[in-house]
């Protein structure tokens, strides 16, 4: 039981980081980034290959690029960097003055094709079998703490990083940068006519979101030790998005609640505690059917989510002791 709980705690922190990152891009900037999961996958893969050691070394059964065995915090930084770079590359191609629905379709194309390429090209990240036996950080602690203790330690570490992510998201949340991003989301021409350059802001939000996603991927693979194309199908982005919309777009706590409900309460807990039905894999397929239905129900009945975006009141933005309220001219 404690074993399951610590596992779930790690998953939740990872999912939260990803969801807050996607919310920046989707909620604040209005970019329908259906290729979001690519940035998480990039982080996970890069973490794995710089932690696994040279290809064909200890784990001769798998092939991959690069291959290094960097000491612990470094693979995480590499993961974050990889996520940021992939997001930036993606953004440079897709963040064009294109209709939003076309843009969404183009992102989807990238997600699907990247998955095909990585599955097919065995030399890249060991194809559809994926990478396994990725060393866990400080695995020697497992003998002293026991597996359960080690899992809780990792969960604590992930939670700390997750809190760091939250403070970043909250800090950016009320900033002029974020406001300009939202303005450009609502009316691009209007924002440009006020001196805002949306192209730069969007690349920035892509880069930051990509870094957080890459970090989440690195944290995940450091925990589960394996990563393969099955873990990052396009529908994963859809699941994260369902959590965001259910909880409340552009509301950090809404995203928290929604992610918990969709990713943890629904996906993980049902997988762990409900009895297996039918043939193996049936319940997974049904989970996706239900997520599709859930999405439809949410956008029909509660499009603003459980906790809608909070209105920023003038009184909270104004200094309580206003310098001079008299006529200036």
């Amino acid at each position: 039981m404690s074993f399951y709980l610590s596992t779930i705690a790690v998953y939740f922190c990872v999912d939260l980081l990803a969801a807050w990152a996607l919310n920046m891009q989707f909620g604040w900037a209005g970019i329908p980034n259906f290729a979001f999961i690519l940035t998480q996958a990039a982080g996970a893969y890069m973490y794995a290959v710089v932690a696994l050691g040279p290809s064909g070394g200890l784990t001769a059964f798998q092939h991959y690029i690069l291959g290094a065995s960097l000491p612990f915090p470094l693979p995480l930084l590499v993961a974050a960097g990889a996520g940021g770079v992939v997001a930036l590359a993606l953004g440079l191609i897709t963040l064009r003055p294109l209709r939003r629905d076309y843009q969404a379709a183009v992102f989807l194309l990238f997600a699907v094709i990247a998955s095909d390429v990585v599955s097919a090209d065995v030399g890249l990240f060991n194809g559809s079998n994926g990478l396994a036996a990725v060393p866990q950080p400080f695995s020697s602690l497992q003998t002293t703490l026991g597996l359960g203790g080690y899992q809780w330690l990792y969960a604590g570490f992930t939670a700390v990083i997750c809190l760091g992510g939250l403070s970043l998201v909250r800090g950016l949340g009320g900033s002029g940068w974020q406001r300009a991003l939202r303005a450009a989301r609502d009316d691009e021409a209007g924002a440009r006519a006020l001196g805002v350059n949306p192209a730069v802001l969007r690349l920035q939000v892509f880069f930051i979101g990509g870094m957080l996603a890459g970090l989440s991927g690195g944290l995940l693979v450091g925990f589960i030790s394996a990563w393969s194309p099955g873990a990052w199908e396009y529908s994963e982005t859809f699941a994260i998005l369902t959590g965001i919309i259910l909880g409340g777009v552009s509301n950090n706590w809404g995203v928290f609640v929604g992610t918990f409900l969709v990713q943890i309460a629904f996906q993980e807990l049902t997988a762990l505690f409900l009895p297996q039905i039918g043939y193996p894999g049936l319940s997974d397929a049904l989970v996706w059917v239900v997520i599709g239905v859930l999405w439809l129900l949410v956008i029909y009945f509660r499009p603003r989510g459980i906790l809608p975006e909070r209105r920023t009141r003038m009184s909270t933005l104004q200094p309580s002791t206003s310098p001079e309220m008299s006529d200036a001219d």
Binding site: L172, G176, R179, G190, T312
Partner: peptide, 29 residues
């Protein structure tokens, strides 16, 4: 008329007032 629908009126004014310098990422960080 171009108004940012998802921003309050006050925020609409702030976007313009802070200008490009007030909306830099470096500043936000």
């Amino acid at each position: 008329a171009s108004v940012f629908d998802g921003l309050t009126v006050f925020e609409n004014l702030l976007v313009a007032g802070l200008g490009d310098q007030g909306s830099r990422l470096r500043g936000a960080l």
